[in-house]
């Protein structure tokens, strides 16, 4: 089976029209992401990371340039590119289980198979006991875990994640990171992962992209040669710390410190 999920972004540019003129959010930006690669995207706040992700998701149209997924141009949202937002975006009238199976109707015709798959991922995120609960009965972190289970169970070619773990406590966060890596290794999904947390970026990714202050360009593209599977201890190793120092230096410079 040939691997799917190769992304090519060419001279991508996005401007927003404001009351007092135009604001350039993403400067012409070119980038190739190999199928199955895990790419983290870091950069100062407001530099255009979410905008970039939204363009790949097809939720925002670029003003210039184009996006190809396995050779096909991206023109709008589609099930091969699922986006996980900072907010969980759950369906409040559906139970935890229903939230996962609802989107799975797009992939799996058989109801029993949908439920089995949904239950498997809910167990993975530690919410098996809450499958009958409504979102309003869950904490914010639990809701975000349902959203993660939903996206992972769906199994898209490309997973676009916009600070998905920002609202989680440290322990849950590292559990979710490990889960994400495990599922990613199994499914070989292409992941584009936006985060403010440099440790998280390096721990997860094959490759860390650093964006400049607005308008966002890629100013550094660091491979992360750390072997997998990675344990949390990797964060104490010299290679890790060297990468971290380099990324932080870039970000400090871009913020203007």
């Amino acid at each position: 089976m040939s691997k799917a999920g190769r992304l090519i972004l060419t001279s991508l540019r996005k401007r927003f029209r404001l009351a007092d003129g135009v604001m350039e959010a993403v400067a012409p930006l070119s980038l190739t992401i190999e199928a199955g690669q895990f790419v983290a995207l870091v950069g100062p706040s407001g530099c255009g990371k979410s905008t970039l992700l939204r363009m790949v998701a097809g939720l925002e149209q670029p003003d210039e340039g184009r996006i190809l997924l396995d050779g096909r141009p991206v023109t709008g949202p589609g099930p091969e590119r699922v986006m996980l937002f900072q907010s969980p975006a759950l369906y409040p009238w559906l139970t935890t289980l229903g939230n996962v199976t609802f989107v799975l109707t797009k992939r799996i015709a058989d109801r029993a198979a949908r439920e089995a798959l949904a239950r498997r991922y809910l167990r993975e995120v530690g919410l098996a006991a809450f499958e009958a609960a409504y979102p309003a009965q869950l904490s914010g972190g639990m809701q975000q875990r349902v959203a993660l289970a939903r996206a992972l169970a769906f199994g898209p070619e490309v997973l676009l994640m916009d600070e998905p773990f920002g609202a989680l406590d440290a322990q849950t966060r590292s559990l979710m990171q490990e889960l994400l890596l495990r599922v990613w290794r199994e499914n070989r999904t292409t992941v584009l992962f936006v985060t403010h947390d440099v440790d998280e970026a390096i721990f997860l990714a094959d490759r860390v992209l650093v964006m400049s202050a607005r308008p966002g360009r890629i100013i550094d593209d660091l491979p992360v040669p750390l072997p997998r599977p990675r344990s949390l201890d990797v964060q104490m190793e010299a290679d890790f710390l060297a990468l971290k120092r380099r990324v932080l230096t870039w970000i400090r410079r871009e913020i203007g410190l």
Binding site: V82, M83, F85, A89, W93, V103
Partner: peptide, 27 residues
């Protein structure tokens, strides 16, 4: 109906009409 809910549904492959009927109305 929150915008992220509509956008999230779109990325899961739901079309406009489907989102109207199966997401907006129930919400």
């Amino acid at each position: 109906v929150p915008q992220p809910l509509l956008e999230s549904s779109a990325t899961f492959g739901f079309g406009d009409r489907e989102i109207l009927r199966r997401v907006i109305v129930p919400y």
